[in-house]
């Protein structure tokens, strides 16, 4: 088992190294003068870290991001579970999220700005629009597809409807709900950056646009790189939470 874990880690590291090497190589060809090499980008990352611009930018970006993701997670899972449990709720709520998922966000942003201004609310809304549909739809699907026989088992051993939901349906649906959550969080990150680029340049969006404007491409890519790293770390934490809280059976074989 230990061997498995170490080899999984080794493969992940290998995959990352290959990507960085390819990046470095593409930067050296060069693909475009606006595309820095990996090493230049790391240099840029170092510079924006020590001059404090990253440190100033992140709280600004994280506020709508965390708020939006938290709202999407809580509301999205609740609505999704309700949809999965009841056809009536599905008929009522499902179309909203299907439309939301396919709506062109860029076209919606001017409307949001008109309605809510350029402040935090609009940005949180953008994050939610990006993150929520996939969380809702996955949760609904997962709940709907709970194996009938374990639900019957719960009933036959005298479980109340609430016990059946909390002790059987939710644990059974947890893997797919969490898969939706991971997709939703990734989409939320995109939403947060998009809102900063399209509404008002603040936070990381500001670092990106500013450095693009003054042609400091290494720093611009460094900012993008940093947000990707943050997203990966965040997703990893979610996976850890899932395995510890809900699926102890998958912990070893994962």
């Amino acid at each position: 088992m230990d061997k498995h874990l170490t080899s999984a880690r080794a493969l992940k590291v290998l995959s990352i190294i290959i990507v960085f090497c390819a990046w470095e190589y593409a930067g050296r060809i060069p693909v475009s003068p606006a595309f820095p090499t990996f090493l230049e980008t790391m240099q840029g990352l170092w510079e924006i870290t020590i001059d404090g611009s990253l440190l100033r930018a992140y709280p600004e970006t994280l506020k709508p991001l965390i708020l939006g993701v938290a709202i999407s997670a809580v509301l999205g899972i609740t609505i999704g579970v309700a949809i999965g449990l009841s056809f009536k709720v599905e008929w009522f709520a499902s179309p909203i999220f299907v439309v939301m998922q396919s709506a062109p966000l860029a076209a919606l942003i001017p409307l949001l700005v008109l309605a809510y201004g350029i402040g935090l609310t609009s940005k949180v809304m953008v994050v939610c629009i990006m993150a929520m549909p996939v969380i809702v739809l996955n949760s609904a699907n997962a709940v709907r597809h709970t194996p009938t026989s374990i639900k019957e088992m719960g009933r036959s051993f005298l479980g109340s409807p609430m016990e059946i939901i909390f002790k059987i349906i939710l644990p059974s649906a947890a893997p797919v709900i969490f898969a939706g959550l991971r997709l939703g969080v990734s989409a939320g990150f995109i939403g947060a950056i998009l809102s900063e680029l399209l509404i008002t340049p603040t936070g990381i969006g500001d670092v990106i646009t500013y450095n693009q404007a003054i042609a400091e491409y290494a720093k611009m890519y460094a900012a993008i790189f940093s947000i990707i790293v943050l997203a990966v770390v965040f997703l990893d934490v979610i996976e850890k939470i899932e395995l510890t809280l809900f699926r102890p059976d998958k912990r070893v074989s994962a």
Partner: peptide, 19 residues
Amino acid sequence: GPGPDRAFVFQDFALMPWA
């Protein structure tokens, strides 16, 4: 409805994989 006087053994076991 189900009652404490009866207990079921299911053809497909109906075990909870997470438990």
